[in-house]
Write a protein that binds this DNA or RNA. Structure first.
Lengths: 250, 250
DNA sequence: CGGGCTCTTGACACCCATCAAAGTTTGTGG
DNA sequence: CCACAAACTTTGATGGGTGTCAAGAGCCCG
């Protein structure tokens, strides 16, 4: 059980509403539905499995606080993190009937989750009753896929230096959607091992790459807070392009 | 325009029916619907773009013959292939409304395609009229996702040797679903550059890795046909596990 | 105050990319 | 049908990016 600072503490604000509002303007009943979901919450420690490979994907969940990831492990201990799940994001939602999870979902830090079953009803049962919410949920699904492709690009065709820069920029963008990113600063409550497992690098090399970014005065990273000193240069280095997920018309 | 042998020629048999029948037992009207789709076809040369990044994903297509891929390119010429699209498989199907393609789809060989718009109707309009077909289509979507995760595992955490073995096994499994794989042989109409772009390797290194597999008497590969000499050893080397996509109940 | 984790550093080996050039196959046109 | 050109494959040499091993330093928690 790794020790981890919990850097997204405090009363869970309207992270989810704030995030989904980026995709579509939600009306009052839609916001109320979302808030009703986040009333009952559950706290989970770090390193806990939330969904196992093979589990039925019949219940969506909201991650209200803390970080998690989708991953898969090898028999020999290697593991690959497919994508991070950030505060305010959703997991376990799949519109296909009888869908089964192809990956394990585990918390990386202490976390707070809540059952979001009503959102499944919204999408499958009566989307027309919550049109904007349905559109927003579709957008988040599209973003998920975009993040997976980003991962492939990073790992397949970028150097360690480029990879790390690219991931940092993606995390900044996603955190800013829920209001957790400062002007040039983001919370990053991950160990270097977790970053390495996501980027397909060894721990040692990730550490050196991190230092290279520091040495070139591109970032600062201390006690779970990362500062982007020259975001524009990072964008250039990583060839970072924000995803083309179109905001659905109202 | 690369020169490429077209190794999946001849009259397009019931590839699609055969493949989807693996996932659910199709009734006669479902099979008839599928066959009606494949009557009107279009031939496309190699290297042709079928879907561009940003295109609306409102029309599904069937690839009746030839190979294609989903990919993304860098400004400097690097490119990453996300997944191959094999004969009998589908592309451009997305159930989300207003969905937009996040990748480019291009043919790798000469190919034959057909418009599969009716399948979209089946899923969105009246799935209960074609229950088995709908279930089968959901399975193919799940498989697609499994292949993406396979890619990430390969590229992120496997050596070149393991990667290539793993990809070969995945291709064998997929080709056998449409009846294109022999007992221990599969068609592989790809240049080494294409394989390299999929596996995140350089052409030269892919070539050497291929030779290593040959030298260790694991495969033979000549003029577009690959023979798996010791499939079991390949499975061991690559830690290959067939996807957990459950066959939906009838 | 002690014991795990985590981060950092150094040394070293090897996997893989790059550059360059020769060899081979395939398709095309005369 | 042959000859040529283009694309593809193979090979060698070399350098650099990353992984591995090992050990020490820092940090947080009990």
């Amino acid at each position: 059980m790794p020790r981890l600072r919990n850097l997204t503490p405090g009363p869970p604000p309207d992270l989810v509403v704030r995030r989904l509002s980026r995709f579509a303007a939600l009306n009052e009943s839609e916001r109320a539905l979302l808030r009703s979901i986040t009333v009952v919450t559950r706290d989970v420690g770090p390193g806990q499995s939330l969904v196992a490979e093979g589990d039925r994907l019949d219940t969506p969940w909201l991650l209200l606080a803390g970080w998690a990831c989708r991953m898969r492990g090898f028999p020999d201990g290697r593991r690959q993190i497919f994508e991070f799940i950030l505060p305010g994001e959703m997991y376990g939602l799949c519109l296909r009937p009888l869908a089964v999870s192809l990956s394990t979902i585990v918390t990386l830090t202490a976390a707070t989750i809540s059952d979001a079953m009503p959102l499944r009803e919204v999408l499958l049962g009566r989307p027309q009753a919550y049109p904007n919410l349905a559109a927003a949920l579709h957008c988040t699904a599209a973003l998920d896929e975009a993040h997976l492709l980003n991962q492939l690009i990073r790992i397949g065709r970028q150097s360690a230096f480029e990879r790390l820069a690219h991931l940092i920029l993606e995390l900044r963008e996603r955190l800013s959607m829920v209001g957790l990113a400062g002007a040039d600063t983001i919370p990053l409550p991950l160990t270097q091992e977790m970053l390495a497992d996501a980027l397909g690098l060894s721990i040692v090399h990730l550490n050196r790459t991190l230092q290279q970014l520091r040495r070139e005065n591109l970032i600062a990273f201390k006690s779970g807070v990362l500062r982007l000193i020259q975001p524009d240069r990072l964008i250039e280095i990583a060839d970072f392009r924000p995803p083309q997920v179109i905001k659905a018309a109202a």
